[in-house]
Design a protein around this nucleic acid. Structure first.
Lengths: 165, 165
DNA sequence: ATAATATGAGATTAATTTATCTTAAAATCA
DNA sequence: TGATTTTAAGATAAATTAATCTCATATTAT
């Protein structure tokens, strides 16, 4: 349903949120793209591209040079999963019926348009309700939200560096 | 959520079902791959590949030579959309959480596993309940189920040839 | 048998998505 | 200012998916 690129974006923002010192601070430390990449097992060059896109979409702020890197542009509680999806994949997947390759015309819908729309709406609503702060919270609790990023691999190091826990 | 290939497969079987003379006849006429392709606006060579796959999966029967072509292997009421999905795409998409690129471990699930699983199960259940007969019925009623295949384009011709209506 | 009609199968090409590489530009710090 | 660090940008490559092409094989009909 979502592209790999989009999942990379989501995981990156959750990780950024989970190593934030305080939930609402605006002046937060920047995290290196290469650190995010290594902790999440995402190709370094690729995560740069994804994050850069999110910078343009105003979800992330970047800073060049020493002490530079990436940080969230808004409070984690104010960024929903669907915000990220919109920025990366767009909404087409949430407007297309299962048996069609293109959007249904509401006036001339496909045979299971009404069923499927319910499903799509539900998915969309869920993604629009979950904030990355909630997921970051689960990461902090030690839950394995980010598939390849565990306490033992990458996360502990990052937390230490940023003085978390 | 489904590959284009899979949607092609679904649309082909719905069209096959909608030009069946009787719902339960076993000895039905074969329809040419090229007719299906043209009516559905699917590349001819490609639909062949898709249908051939469905022949191997026992959902379709093919016959070479004059009077040959493709026909359903079972009654349309006995083929669900999920049967086709299983045959073409497999079930991976219905077992993978939104924020993950790989299957969640039930013992160590991601932060929104339980929500998302509900959604996936619902989608799967729906696809497993809808038979291609139901959708073929809508086609017969003149509804535009098959996105590019309308009465004016392809369908009328096919119906005529097979003595439907 | 032979010719014509269809699918079968495998190789090839094209398009899209994902990943990598290289160089440029900006920021920091000495 | 100059060296270093880090993202920006664009080109290139690899992988995956979708589409095309060619020839083989099976079936029917004459």
């Amino acid at each position: 349903m979502l592209s790999k690129t989009c999942k990379y974006g989501i995981q990156s923002l959750i990780l950024l949120a989970s190593i934030k010192k305080s939930a609402d601070s605006q002046i937060d430390e920047y995290v290196l793209g290469k650190q995010l990449a290594s902790a999440l097992s995402i190709p370094k060059e690729y995560i740069h591209k994804v994050l850069h896109n999110l910078v343009n979409k105003k979800l992330v702020i970047s800073m060049k040079g020493p002490q530079g890197g990436f940080r969230l542009a808004r409070a984690p509680a104010d960024i929903t999963l669907f915000d990220i999806v919109k920025a990366i994949d767009g909404t087409a997947a949430f407007e297309t019926c299962v048996i069609r390759t293109q959007k249904c015309d509401e006036d001339n819908p496909c045979g299971l348009h009404h069923y499927w729309r319910k499903n799509l709406t539900q998915a969309r609503t869920l993604l629009d309700q979950i904030t990355i702060d909630e997921l970051a919270d689960e990461v902090r609790k030690g839950k394995r939200v980010l598939e390849f990023c565990t306490e033992d691999f990458g996360l502990k190091e990052l937390k230490k560096q940023f003085g978390i826990n």
